[in-house]
Design a protein around this nucleic acid. Sequence first.
DNA 1: TCGAGGATCAGGGGCGTCCCCGATGGTTCG
DNA 2: CGAACCATCGGGGACGCCCCTGATCCTCGA
Lengths: 225, 225
Amino acid sequence: MATAERKGPVSVVIVDDHAMFRRGVRAELESAGRGQVAILAEAADVDEAIAAVGEHRPDVVLLDVHLPGGGGAEVMRRVTAGGGAPETRYLALSVSDAAEDVIGTIRGGARGYVTKTITGPELVQAIGRVAEGDAVFSPRLAGFVLDAFSGSIDVAAVDEDLDRLTEREREVMRLIARGYAYKEVAKELFISIKTVETHMSSVLRKLQLSSRHELTRWASDRRLL
Amino acid sequence: MATAERKGPVSVVIVDDHAMFRRGVRAELESAGRGQVAILAEAADVDEAIAAVGEHRPDVVLLDVHLPGGGGAEVMRRVTAGGGAPETRYLALSVSDAAEDVIGTIRGGARGYVTKTITGPELVQAIGRVAEGDAVFSPRLAGFVLDAFSGSIDVAAVDEDLDRLTEREREVMRLIARGYAYKEVAKELFISIKTVETHMSSVLRKLQLSSRHELTRWASDRRLL
DNA sequence: TCGAGGATCAGGGGCGTCCCCGATGGTTCG
DNA sequence: CGAACCATCGGGGACGCCCCTGATCCTCGA
């Protein structure tokens, strides 16, 4: 935890495509965050958000993940690419607790991620901590965020794994991932069921998976279908 | 369209599990709906909603679709089953524009369905029209709602099939479609493997499918994951 | 009150999945 | 040539998937 020393109020820009949600956040911050939070601007889409951040250079941007024009990650990418507001922190505020949303947003540069079930006082506290450089996550998200960044899949590692498959193994893998039974794969490739089993065994071992269902998800995650 | 004659303000109960969103709606209705809308109560889950509707008997219930305790449809079902507030109209207010959410909510008895992208003045107007008996839908939803109720093969057929599943069968179906093994489903739902097998048997028979792989494709085609 | 249907569970069987063990022939490379 | 790797196949086994029959308990409506 950083120290609680602060000079003045934390300046904030609210980015969300729902006007009513912005209004609710504003109302909560103005009552629960009395004197601690100053709302500089609101934005309803990616372009507005970029303009608002560039103009006001807030301490913290409250950023909705699902946003017309490319999503919250797009905002962070384009602001930092434009060299603007390097000291600004981003706190994602989303209804979604899906792993891909969370990880994608953190990869994009957010310093925290809380769900919209948060209460006003908790949000004020989260904003304060993010402004001071802490990372803030909803309790339910904290666990798997750490998992994802402490030794799980890397994009580079994916291609290495794929390269270690032989041509025949890749053919079998594709068909299995599409839901073919071993018997059907065998007929399709004019080989025996036993050969299919052997290839599948190698595929699962090389990709460190344990079932055809995991393989299906693995392949669809990487759009290999 | 009904006439615009009204004696006094329309009484409203707001149901949504996000306190901040309720606050935003309240703020919008109190400024944009000045004198036309009277907010009687708020509720954050199914039980609170039922109690609030029974106690206040509002003209209109603003009802979130995704709600802890069974969802908005559950609120309408239990209020009408309890004989309470027959003259109360329900207006669904949701982030989701998924077909199953919309159709399920309308089937549950809602007189309208608008997304949370709506503005304050539009919401005030929608509440007024629902109170007078009109049906109100966001422009984007209107088209396919009409389709679904005028003999569309696609959505209607899906929904019929889905309707024939019991609640428990749908739970099992969702987990299986996500790749859970029977054993895992059993642990998740605190029932025996044999019961899972029974439910799956019913699911496959009712949906005229023959394996969990077909079920996975069926579900993903209809975005039920 | 009786039947229908839903949720729960058991046993047994056929087949699919995935693993272990093994084997043969083919290639490439040092 | 031998080592390494690949593709091909087999036996056997443990376990998962899916079906069938049959059962109990409960709730709801005719």
